[in-house]
Each structure stands twice: as structure tokens, then as C-alpha cells.
Design a protein around this nucleic acid. Structure first.
Length: 854
RNA sequence: GCCCGCGUGGUGGAAUGGUAGACACUGGAGACUUAAAAUCUCUUGGCCGUAUGGCCGUGCCGGUUCGAGUCCGGCCGCGGGCACCA
């Protein structure tokens, strides 16, 4: 019987459907397990990276099913966002049609993968049913004081008269108009996530099954700092401004200050520009370009001397100049700083540019001869934990760590009435307003008499109108003739709807909760949420380490506060796994115009260690590049499934590379995966037809089987899928070569099929049926290893001489240390190396290694 | 610029501080075959050597340790994120 994936896979998918194998139903008699992969954006085509992501989740889901869990494994679509509008602009369709067509296409591409998903729970965030409940959440959060309205800076395209996303700003210019982008303030809605800064930080400690790197990134993002806030008094006031409030995390360097810097958006800077055209021009220049931190940080550091001077708080005769500087953010601290060139490279560059003094406040504890900053050296910026010598200290010891000096400086300043120690966070409130059509409308109404009023819940969802056009830039809701008009929910008079829609991060911040009851007429159903939450295992890309995961953590808290999630669900993801990308080589040649020309893998023949086109031209090979349409190196999973079947695609994306790392897709690798599965199928057929009596090879085979159970189980539980697959290769080879009797072989083969079933479920079902397994393998209990079959009596100990392996001895597993020593010293290689002398040291690590030091 | 990762043969990678290169791909040799495909067997880090074997080797430089791919410090390269891409 040949291995024909197309038949096998369709057959078993139908069998699972019929049996409702993956339909999740609340059942308190079993432990629940909720496994979730980050849901996809409906681009229209599934990507091999999706295959990898969902296969990993499916392995966990199927494994948990076979260990007696009640499994929830849902799928949905993160369906709002800019690409749908861009497509509408480019080809004239409608975002809604484009999106739903794409979803249909993607579901059709995903189904053949045989994922154990409860498809009955599927939804898209652009379903009015979903975003209507999101609007209800918004209203509840507004009532609960979790939402605020204030100014935010956006990228403004002065030609298209529209707000641009950061990715639409290229080199400071609008992507369509090419106009220089300006920063502009708009009134926007904000989630008050900064109120939760400390809690979100503290709670990271409890997330034991999250990668440490993700927690560290979130910690740095929240950016808790302790510092000193105080004011410099202006020598001469300007209008109502007589002082400049500054915040510093390094108050110990106060005596090294050489200038005060304020943001171009600082109230004082705005006041001064009224009658200083030069400064107004400078500020306007600073407001050009995108809003990203990256753009601000990379811009050339520029300053403008306002001519104002402030007094140093510790010496009123010491006056410092006040500069407006483009690198100071109004969003962080007070929008004003004092510059200490000796201990900050940016300040040092600034001081040298504008010829300001450089004054060290501390120096290295041991002079290593490096030039001081005042003598042309680099800024001296040691870690706060390092002990340094304070040459211009004013609090605490002369020799102390930066951290100690900072604490002493804050105490000193507080005692002397110079300022207060304050704790600040880098985390800013989450601006959720978007000036775009394809998003969830923000359910508020602007009334001349009542002001801003939330829509009544019975009027939800506030649905997007379908009759819109995308022929001109900007938000079509703004120019819709009737949609905006609505009675005020408070007074009933004619009023206007808000036309801003919600950030798509809002959609993805609670979809995991909605999956627990996707059609409830409230955002969640209390019993379903209580039963299914939390997500036991969440799987997704590392690119979501900060924003999506932090917003979701905030949202879970907000949903708890508004009664939509139990207290136990404020950390919604018990365990997180971040998987790597699937990459593929790029094949390129250089065109006549000198630009690279990219070639499809099908067009390239690999031989003699190089790649060649049909005409013999050699191509440059860039290995392991991120798949990208423009580079022609995207692998289409549909073609792979048609050629080899879903099991091959699943097996390949799990093998070869650890899940957290990128995996390189190679045609030869896929071919090899297929060959292996065909081989397993062939071995199973042979075994099913075999009739060999039990014999002495049986025990060895069964011992190996039990070892394989342990290794594969450990691999699956620890996301070591590639290691588990390596063991499966090994056990397959053992089984193929074994001379054991048919009964033992059938047992071993059925176990192999079970161990493979999470990865290659269709093949596993087929083998299971072939060998007379009961029911579906998907429902069969996971095999258990027999400890008695795992005991090994002897171990091989490597013998090192001076840390290099020179020999080995076989010893009983539990041989005492002193006997191992004797045996080691009697080893030929050791005797030779000792040459009659005695070893300096003899290290014996039982069961591990012997090291003879000579 | 700032934050976080990663770097091991021709290739993907394995390795609780304890035999570096498991497993797989590619390449090479062979078996089977009229032939090819398929399948099976052996081999495949570099250098020296007929061989027993020896030396080198985990991006680079240094350190800790009996012992470092693994821990520490410093560099280099690549990737992710930087709040309106999702």
C-alpha cells in the first residue's frame, strides 16, 4: 500500500469532523487546557510561518487532548487595519469585501493542514458582533475612569491633509505625497495604562512561564526610575514663567551641569517663539519629520540658545544658559533637563558643538589613563553599581557607587528644600484614536449642549457604513453625508458621531477572552470565561514581545475592573512561547541597470555548491533571509501540501530547527521529510503483514520504545519539537532494523504512531487503523513509559586528562566514587600519561565524567 | 541612537558547566536494476598520518574553572522592537 497523503489526509479530516474531536465544550469533570496561537492578519495567503506557528500550537493541543485534557484551540482573524484600505485605494474594492474574501481564502488554505481547531468558534475582529462588544467594553471602561481624552502628537501630511502611520513616513516624508511630514497635536482618546505601570511591572515577577527576555523588554519599556524633580529659577522671567521644572535620574551630577535644555514643545519654548521669529523657525524645523522615538534619536542633535539664564540651585551666582534642544521629549519627565556633558555622551556632543563647559563630578576609582571628558575624552558613564570617586559630590561619601550617591543626593536635596525624590515611568498612556475608516468606531457622540457623550449600549454596535469611497486621502467617515448624524444619547438633540476608529491593538487585546464564548451578547460569558481562562499556552512571534502583550495584560485588568473577567484572569497568558521565523534563501543576479534581480527558487538549479539559472548564469545566494514577496523567496504552503501533503509540511517545519529560532525552508528538506513519512508508512505496512514469532530481540526493541516515549514526551512538553523528531528518526531506524517478533513490533509501531500523532496526525491515524488500534488515535491515551524498562546497568564514563578526552571506561551505574577512581587510574591512557607520577587532582563526577589533572 | 536576542562542519542544527558536531540535508562510494527512479548499506569538521593516533576547532579578544559552545568582561556581525505595520 503506497503512501498517498491526499487520500489519507482528506479521509481523517472528515473522520475528526464527524466525531467532533476538536469541538470544545465546557466540562468540569476534566482539566481544561487552552492553547492559542496569535491570530493572523487576513492578508489572503497563508504563509509558511503561519504553518509553523499553528502546527506548534496543534502539537500541544493534540498532546493535551491525549493526556486527558479538555482542550480549547480556536482560530480567528485580526481583520481591521490599514492594508484593507490600501488595497481599496490601489484597486478600488471595498475593505470589507477584500477582508472577508481573504478570510475565506485563508480558511480554505488552512483547513487542509488538519489542525485540531474548534472552527465553530471562529470570528473576525471586523464582525459587527465582535466590535460591538468591544464598543460596550469601551463604554464600561470610560465609566470606570480607565479612559482619558487629551492631546497627542501625530504625523501630519500637509499635502494630503491626513494623518500618517509611522510606516507611511519614509525618511521624514509622506509615502504618497512625498511632502515633508510635520508633527501635529490632535485631541485623542487614551487608555490610562500608565495608571497600571507599577502593577504591570510588579506582576512580571509572577509570569514564571514567560521567556525572561520578554519580561526584561517589558520591564525596560515600562521604565520605572527614581529621580529628583526640582526647578531652576530664571534670572529674568518670561511672562508667567519664572522657573523651569526638571527631572533627573542623576541628581548626583548636579554640580556638573553646564546648560538647561527644554523641548521645542515646552510651554516656555512656545511662549518665547511668539516674539522670536528665529526661535519659531527653529522650533518649526524641529517639528518636522516623523514622531517615532527612533527618528528623534537619530536626528542630528541641535540646540537654540534662548539667551535666557537660570540660577544653579546650590550657588545662585552660578548661571546656566537655556537652550531649546530637539532631542528633549515633551512626553517624558517635565520636558526639560539639565545637561551634564562629562557623564552623558549626547550632552558632551552638544557641549562641544555649542562650546559649553565640561565639568566632571566623578572619576574612575582607579585611573587607567583614559582621557577625562574635559580633556577631549569620551563621556564617563559607568554603571550605577560601580564605585567611583566624587570630585564634585555634595552628598554622601567621596567614594561610592552611583546608586548610593543618587540616593544621598535626593535625601540632601529634599532636606535642603531643593526638590523632591519622585518615581517616574517611561510608559505612556495608550492612544487609541485612529483617523481611519477600517476599524471599530469609537462609540461616542459629540453634542453641542452635552459635550462628549457615550453611545447607549442598546444602540450598539455602531456599525461602519458600507457606502464609502477611497478615492481621496483621509477618513471617509469624515465626509460621509449622513452616518455622522445621530441624536445625542443624553438630550436627544441632533449631534455628531465621533469619526475616529480604534487602534487595531484594541481588537487583539481581548480576542482570547472572546474565544471562550464567541457569540455571547456581552463581551464575555462569566461561566465560560471562568472555566476556560487563562490561556494555558500562548504562542506567537517575538515581534509582539512588548506592545501586544503589554496591552493585553492591561486590558485583562481593565476587563476585570469592569466585570468582564474574573480576578484570576488579570494575567491572561499563563505560559508564553515565542517562535522564530521561516526563512528562505534569496537568489539574485545583477540586472543591466545595476539593480538586483530576484529569481524564484523554481528557476534556480542547485549544483556544484552554487545556484544556476537555466541559461547557466550563476546566481548569488543569500541564505536565511526573511521571506518577502519583493525578493521572490516566499514559499507557498498550498503548493507544498499539494505536492507532499500536510503531514510533510508539518513535520518539516517542526524538525531541523528549535522552535524559538528561525528555520530555513529548503526544497531538499521538504523532500526528505516526505521520504521519511513514506518510509514510516511502508514499515507500518510491513509490520501489519508480518508474522514472526516472539524472540529475544523483543526486549531490546521494547526498551528502546520506552526510552522513545520518555524522550518524545519531554520534547513535546518543553517545546523541543526538533529534538523530539530527532528521537523519532532514531526510533524509526531501530524499529526498521529490529528482528523482534510481530507482536512486539506491532506494539512498537502503534506507539511510534502515537508519538508522531501530534506532528503528523493523518499518517498516525492511518497506521493506527492499519494495526487495529481502537477508535481514533487522536483520542487514544498518550503512551506511558514503564520505569522498569528504562533502567540501565552500566554507563560509559569518558576519562579526561587535563580536561581533554583521552579514554573511556564502562562501569556499573551506581559504582562508588573510590572504585571509579581506582579503575580510572588503572586505565592504560592514564598510566601512560602519568608516567609513574601521581595525579595532581582526580575529579570524578558519578555517572558523568572522570578528569585526571597532571 | 536606545532596549532585547542570536552567532557551532559545505547546510539546518544537537549538547543539566562534563565525550563538541546527536538527528537531518548535501556531497562521495557501493548494493539492487538491462537502465533510470525508488530503496538499502557505508562514508562525510579541518590539518598531519599507511595506521594506532596526534594537532586544531563553537564570530573575535581576554577572564573564571580540574573542565567553557554553555558563566563573566570587551569587541564585531546579524535579527526583533522603539508606542499609528500587524
Amino acid at each position: 500500500m503506497p503512501y498517498t497523503p491526499s487520500e489519507i489526509e482528506a479521509k481523517w479530516q472528515a473522520a475528526w469532523d464527524k466525531a467532533g474531536t476538536f469541538k470544545a465544550v465546557r466540562d468540569t469533570s476534566k482539566p481544561k487546557y487552552y492553547v492559542l496561537e496569535m491570530f493572523p492578519y487576513p492578508s489572503g495567503r497563508i504563509h509558511i510561518g503561519h504553518v509553523r506557528n499553528y502546527t506548534m500550537g496543534d502539537v500541544i493541543a493534540r498532546y493535551k487532548l491525549s493526556t486527558g485534557h479538555n482542550v480549547l484551540h480556536p482560530m480567528g482573524f485580526d481583520a481591521f487595519g490599514m492594508p484593507a484600505e490600501n488595497a481599496a485605494m490601489a484597486s478600488g474594492g471595498h475593505p470589507k469585501d477584500w477582508t472577508y474574501n481573504n478570510i475565506d481564502d485563508m480558511v480554505a488554505q488552512m483547513k487542509p493542514l488538519g489542525l485540531g481547531i474548534d472552527w465553530s468558534r471562529m470570528f473576525a475582529t471586523c464582525d459587527p458582533e465582535y466590535y460591538g462588544q468591544q464598543q460596550a467594553l469601551f463604554i464600561d471602561m470610560l465609566d470606570a475612569g480607565l479612559i482619558d481624552r487629551k492631546n497627542a502628537t501625530v504625523n501630519w501630511d500637509p499635502v494630503d491633509m491626513t494623518v500618517l502611520a509611522n510606516e507611511q513616513v519614509i525618511d521624514g516624508k509622506g509615502w504618497r505625497s512625498g511632502a515633508e511630514v510635520e508633527r501635529k497635536d490632535l485631541t485623542q482618546w487614551f487608555f490610562k495604562i500608565s495608571d497600571y505601570a507599577d502593577e504591570l511591572l510588579e506582576a512580571l515577577d509572577g509570569l514564571d512561564d514567560w521567556p525572561a527576555k520578554v519580561k526584561l523588554m517589558q520591564e525596560n519599556w515600562i521604565g520605572k526610575s527614581r529621580g529628583l524633580q526640582f526647578a531652576f529659577s530664571l534670572v529674568e522671567g518670561v511672562g508667567s514663567h519664572d522657573r523651569i521644572e526638571v527631572y533627573t535620574t542623576r541628581p548626583d551630577t548636579l554640580l556638573g551641569a553646564s546648560f538647561v535644555g527644554i523641548s521645542p514643545d515646552h510651554p516656555l519654548a512656545r511662549a518665547l517663539e511668539q516674539d522670536n521669529p528665529e526661535l519659531a523657525a527653529f522650533n518649526a524645523e524641529c517639528r518636522k519629520g516623523g514622531t517615532t522615538e527612533e527618528a528623534l534619536e537619530k536626528a542630528e542633535k541641535k540646540g537654540f540658545d534662548t539667551g535666557l539664564r537660570v540660577r544653579h540651585p546650590f550657588d545662585t551666582s552660578w548661571e546656566l544658559p537655556v537652550y531649546v534642544a530637539n532631542f528633549i521629549l515633551m512626553d517624558y519627565g517635565t520636558g526639560a533637563i539639565f545637561g551634564v556633558p562629562a557623564h552623558d555622551q549626547r550632552d558632551l556632543d552638544f557641549a562641544r558643538k555649542y562650546d559649553l563647559p565640561v565639568i566632571s563630578t566623578y572619576a574612575p576609582a582607579t585611573d587607567d589613563g583614559t582621557a577625562m571628558p574635559e580633556d577631549g575624552g569620551a563621556a564617563y558613564v559607568p554603571p550605577k553599581t560601580e564605585t567611583v570617586i566624587y570630585v564634585r559630590g555634595f552628598a554622601g561619601e567621596t567614594e561610592q557607587t552611583g546608586a548610593a550617591a543618587i540616593d544621598a543626593a535626593i535625601d540632601f536635596c529634599e532636606a535642603n528644600g531643593v526638590g523632591q525624590g519622585v518615581t517616574k515611568y517611561r510608559l505612556r498612556d495608550w492612544g487609541l484614536s485612529r483617523q481611519r475608516y477600517w476599524g471599530a468606531p469609537i462609540p461616542v457622540v459629540h453634542c453641542d449642549d452635552c459635550g462628549v457623550v457615550p453611545e447607549k449600549k442598546e444602540n450598539l454596535p455602531v456599525e461602519l457604513p458600507y457606502d464609502v469611497s477611497f478615492d481621496i486621502p483621509g477618513n471617509p467617515l469624515d465626509r460621509h453625508p449622513t452616518w455622522r448624524n445621530t441624536p445625542c444619547p443624553a438630550c436627544g438633540k441632533g449631534a455628531l458621531r465621533e469619526t475616529d476608529t480604534m487602534d487595531t491593538f484594541v481588537d487583539s487585546s481581548w480576542y482570547f477572552a472572546r474565544f471562550t464564548s464567541p457569540h455571547a451578547d456581552t463581551p464575555t460569558d462569566p461561566e465560560d470565561a471562568a472555566y476556560w481562562m487563562n490561556v494555558d499556552q500562548y504562542i506567537g512571534g517575538i515581534e509582539h514581545a512588548i506592545l501586544h502583550l503589554l496591552y493585553s495584560r492591561f486590558f485583562a485588568r481593565a476587563m476585570h475592573k469592569t466585570g468582564h473577567l474574573p480576578a484570576s484572569a488579570i494575567e491572561p497568558f499563563d505560559a508564553l512561547f515565542t517562535q522564530g521565523m521561516v526563512t528562505h534563501a534569496i537568489y539574485k543576479t545583477t540586472g543591466t541597470d545595476g539593480r538586483p534581480v530576484y529569481h524564484y527558487p523554481e528557476a534556480v538549479e542547485l549544483r556544484d555548491g552554487g545556484g544556476f539559472l537555466k541559461d547557466g548564469t550563476q546566481v548569488d545566494i543569500v541564505p536565511s533571509a526573511k521571506m518577502s514577496k519583493s525578493k521572490n523567496n516566499v514559499v507557498d504552503p498550498v503548493a507544498i501540501i499539494e505536492q507532499y501533503g500536510a503531514d510533510t509540511a508539518r513535520w518539516f517545519v517542526l524538525s531541523d530547527s528549535p522552535p524559538e529560532r528561525d528555520v530555513e525552508w529548503t526544497a531538499s528538506g521538504a523532500e526528505a521529510a516526505y521520504k521519511h513519512l513514506a518510509r514510516v508508512h511502508r514499515i507500518a505496512s510491513d509490520i501489519a503483514a508480518g508474522d514472526v514469532a516472539a524472540n529475544d530481540a523483543d526486549e531490546a526493541l521494547l526498551r528502546d520504545m520506552h526510552k522513545a516515549i520518555v524522550d518524545v514526551t519531554n520534547g513535546v512538553e518543553s517545546f523541543g519539537f526538533n529534538a523530539a523528531i530527532a528521537k523519532l528518526y532514531g526510533f524509526t531506524a531501530t524499529l526498521a532494523k529490529s528482528k523482534a517478533g510481530s507482536s512486539a513490533k506491532r506494539e512498537a509501531m502503534k506507539t511510534l504512531a502515537q508519538l508522531m500523532s501530534p506532528m503528523t496526525p493523518h499518517l498516525a491515524e492511518d497506521i493506527w487503523a492499519m494495526l487495529g488500534g481502537e477508535g481514533l488515535i487522536a483520542n487514544a491515551p498518550w503512551p506511558k513509559a514503564d520505569d522498569a524498562m528504562l533502567v540501565e546497568d552500566t554507563v560509559t564514563l569518558p576519562i579526561q586528562i587535563n580536561g581533554k578526552r583521552r579514554s573511556e571506561i564502562a562501569v556499573p551505574k551506581d559504582m562508588p566514587k573510590d572504585e571509579v577512581e581506582k579503575l580510572a587510574l588503572a586505565d592504560e591512557a592514564v598510566i601512560k600519561a602519568l608516567d609513574g607520577g601521581a595525579p595532581k587532582k582526580l575529579i570524578v563526577v558519578p555517572g558523568r565524567i572522570v578528569n585526571v589533572v597532571i
